[in-house]
Design a protein around this nucleic acid. Structure first.
Lengths: 356, 356
DNA sequence: GCGAACTGAGAAAACGCTTTCTGGTGCGGT
DNA sequence: ACCGCACCAGAAAGCGTTTTCTCAGTTCGC
């Protein structure tokens, strides 16, 4: 008590650079003008006498003054920051989206704040809310939460853009890859090569993109009754593929559609260890066309998704929302492009069905 | 003029939720208490009558009130956010660091803001400054800027931790991987296998970790005069390795130390296309032990770096700095672990030197 | 030569929160 | 019964900006 009082007496309202960091006030004092004028100069407001402006600029330079972004944010009501929530930062797909988003946003002077939900869907809601409050907008990447929950929180997250997920909440653009068409293209490719027994090594159950693939395969099966398609449980990483070898062999399939490139690579590796030849014995396909896919042995047949571009587009959509351009949130769909490489080849010996 | 005046008269200082978003004031009004009390309740201050606290909590819940982090940040002088600057977000190494950092920081309630300098060193200084001002601390990842510049800006960036780079500026912990020892281990492994002609496929010239590798190789050469080591220019990605095939073959080396796993994979892919066998004809090694390394064909011999852990440790160091624990910024060095897999084998035919 | 319009800069309010300061109430001690 | 102390909640002062408001000093027009 006494102490603090004594201190205050010794230091009567001087404060100056109390926080240690120099602020607008210091510049104002040094230049002999008011805070307001300094602010005007720093923001390029031309209603300031050029001579005074020069003096302020000199003072600012000398003190190496840089405006405090937090103060600015509070006054301006914007942070020049956007947030992105991803289910798993270790996943190359989300890394690529993040990269595209970050690059595009940076070009407009925005930074990105990341939030990794580690695939636990209950965290997503909280993370999204927190991130949104600190930012001017949010990108929700393949959220694992339920449709109902997504729809419920969407309004409070606006401006919001969704990647690989849709919602009926209004004003929320969605950027989705047409995984359904992609798997159909891949399956078609395998059938053309003579495969009649296919297997799909599925992804994370809660993943919407996995759902889209499953739906695509249903469509495919309906159109190709002669083809047998086995569904196998899986995941989204290497190890999933590696551990699925037994299940894959047990299925008797000769053409394997892996959930994504990672799973395909794990699977190929496992098959190789068993002494099986790809594509001699079994054809394997991936999805995404991650950079590595070109360089596996054999090079992986896959469906290329312009994933970095997706991140970039996400920023453009979000920017439009932030700027309140009444673009009615179009959203868009991306068609994967079949990329035939060396991991697929003619079926070895059709076992269950005889053609021609 | 007249308009605005009329407006003000009609709306005399009501404001309420001017920003559209509900604030502490709304809760205060609803609960019939002051802002201060709401703040106290929200922050778990127990000097509030339980009954009033309950009323406030009810009001907050009903209005779905969430404190505005920007206002909080300004008042508290902290943002609960840290920044990380990386030279290239596409590089798996930096992705892994980011992941480790993000995960560790999240556990302490901190978020991370990313800044990608795209390998242009002049951007780094600006990005670092901007990021730092928005955050409570900064991680500078393998900065490409000069030692002088780094030392100059380091004080203004404090709390700061460096990854794979050191500086003489005080109070800046450094987390470095001992790449020098790593390449020596790898080179030693190749020599044990009988290789006497090695080649090093270098990384980005400005990369400090590349410098450490070069230094390590110098040490190695001094200790193994019988071994010839060719230096080849390179980079840090797949394509670098893929395009280096000619240079590698021209060198006549039988053991190739690639800058990292990516380069090694690209190289193996290129060699495979030329019909060369790894490790039959040429042994190839990588560095980092990225997740993919286990799954290449042949599986890649490499030096494993606990890179995610590095990101994690970076957070712990930064946290200590933020909390002003006087830990005198120890920093630490990580030893890579040689991971022998299938991409290295006995030298085919020692050409220039004959042993025992 | 005087009022109106204009210019430019300072004063002050606002942004949304935390925290110190202040003051009223109720209690216990003497 | 009175003084003092502890308690608790409101008032207000920050935090570092931007921006509106205000007002003094000019300039212009008539």
């Amino acid at each position: 008590m006494l102490c603090s009082k004594a201190l205050n007496e010794g230091f009567p309202m001087v404060r100056k650079s109390a926080s240690g960091r120099i602020g607008i006030a210091d510049v104002a004092i040094k230049a002999g003008v008011s805070h307001a004028t300094v602010s005007r100069v720093m923001n390029g407001n031309f209603t300031v006498d050029p001579e005074i402006a020069a003096r302020v600029r000199a003072a600012a330079a000398e003190l190496k003054y840089q405006p405090n972004p937090v103060g600015r944010s509070l006054a301006l009501g914007k942070t020049d920051t956007i947030g992105i929530v991803v289910p798993d930062l270790a996943n190359p797909t989300f890394q690529a989206i993040l990269r595209g988003l970050s690059r595009a946003a940076a070009q407009d002077g925005y930074r990105v704040l990341i939030a990794d939900s580690f695939e636990v869907s209950s965290e997503e809601t909280i993370l999204a809310g927190e991130a949104r409050r600190r930012c001017d907008g949010l990108v929700l990447c393949a959220p694992r939460m339920s449709d109902a929950e997504l729809e419920e929180i969407a309004p409070s997250l606006h401006p919001l853009v969704l990647i690989n997920r849709t919602t009926s909440a209004p004003g929320v653009p969605s950027l989705v890859v047409d995984y359904g068409q992609g798997v159909q293209d891949i399956a078609g490719h395998l059938v053309e090569l003579g495969h009649t027994r296919l297997a799909f090594l599925a992804g994370p159950p809660r993943s919407a993109s996995n759902g889209m693939r499953l739906k695509g395969l249903e469509t495919f099966k309906a159109a190709h009754l002669e083809v047998e398609v086995t569904m196998l449980e899986g995941g989204s990483d290497f190890d999933t593929g590696h551990e699925a070898v037994d299940a894959v062999l047990a299925s008797g399939a000769t053409g394997i559609l892996a959930f994504n490139d990672l799973v395909a690579m794990g699977l190929m590796s496992g098959l190789h260890e068993r002494g099986l030849d790809v594509p001699g014995d079994i054809s394997v396909t991936g999805f995404d066309d991650i950079p590595f896919a070109k360089y596996t042995t054999p090079a992986l047949t896959t469906a290329a998704v312009p994933i970095t571009e997706l991140g970039e587009q996400a920023w453009h959509q979000l920017r439009a929302l932030i700027r309140k351009e009444g673009n009615e949130a179009p959203g868009s769909s991306y068609q994967p492009r079949l990329e035939v490489r060396a991991s697929t080849g003619p079926a070895k010996a059709p076992r269950s069905t005889v053609h021609g």
